[in-house]
């Protein structure tokens, strides 16, 4: 079974700050990590491989520095890695990103594609499903459990107040929740091996036979970020506790009068 896991390198939001003027992320000096949901997806792929055999390939679109995210995935146990990196890919929105990744996936080949549900920097949850659509694959998003039996996978899909278990014939695509798996650590030997392997870097030229330059990058993106701004912190409200209904009404009225609202 050939499993391909799509990962994204994101700034560690635990340490990230917003530029108060531009409202954008300050990325300088912020460590980069593999997106949490993607790491869970990678772990699920590694566990499936341990159970039924096959290979796990990781794919990442990003700048050359994203190489380290792929090395980390190799050090966790992935078999091979592809970095999709080119000036032409810059500025892509989710649709254009999915176009590029889908083109690469066609070239790599797969039985099962796993992506994370959403990235912690963009929070769109769109790229996974868009890849599925562009490849015309059946897809299950929000996977919290994943198993395989022959040509079929079984996915428990999370809803707000319930869950569905779906049986899907491969090839197909699954988007993983962090809850799907607790990712393993890299191993020391895995890291040494990871830096002895080659990460295949594909630029625009490697994909251009199947990739219309009009569909990618800034100009191929149907959406663009018009404005971004931080939220203003508001004062926490006052909590009135241990009051009877009458006392509560009185207390609220008092507050409203005090503030000249009534």
């Amino acid at each position: 079974m050939k499993i391909v896991v799509c990962i994204k390198q994101v700034p560690d939001t635990a340490e990230v700050k917003l530029d108060p003027k531009t409202g954008t992320l300050i990325r300088d000096g912020v460590p980069s990590i593999i997106n949490h949901d993607d790491r869970a997806g990678l772990e699920a792929a590694l566990q499936l491989r341990e159970r039924v055999g096959g290979t796990v390939t990781v794919v990442c679109m990003g700048p050359p520095q994203a190489d380290v995210a792929l090395r980390e995935a190799l050090a966790m146990g992935a078999d091979d890695a592809y970095l999709l990196s080119a000036r032409e890919f810059g500025g892509s929105d989710t649709y254009a990103t999915a176009t590029i990744i889908a083109t690469a996936l066609k070239k790599i080949g797969f039985d099962l594609v796993i992506t994370g549900r959403q990235a912690i920097d963009g929070d769109t949850a769109q790229v996974g499903p868009q890849i599925g659509e562009q490849l015309r694959l059946p897809q299950v998003s929000y996977a919290e459990e994943l198993d395989v039996d022959g040509d079929y996978i079984f996915v428990k899909r999370q809803f707000e107040d319930s869950a569905h278990v779906l049986k899907v014939k491969m090839p197909c695509l699954v988007t993983a929740l962090s809850e799907l798996c607790e990712p393993r650590y890299m191993s020391v030997r895995g890291i040494v091996d990871a830096y002895e392997k080659t990460v295949t870097v594909w630029g625009f030229d490697d994909l251009k036979n199947d990739l219309n330059p009009e569909w990618i990058g800034l100009k191929g993106s149907p959406t663009n970020v018009f404005q971004s701004f931080g939220k203003k912190m508001r004062d926490p409200g006052t909590l009135l506790k241990d009051l009877t209904a009458d006392q509560a009404v009185e207390a609220i009225m008092e507050k409203l009068i005090e503030r000249h609202i009534i």
Partner: peptide, 18 residues
């Protein structure tokens, strides 16, 4: 499990090769 007890030793003997 994660190889912390074989860091500087050769892979041919089961170490990490670091």
């Amino acid at each position: 499990k994660y190889g912390f007890l074989g860091i500087p030793y050769a892979k041919e003997y089961g170490g990490c090769g670091s």
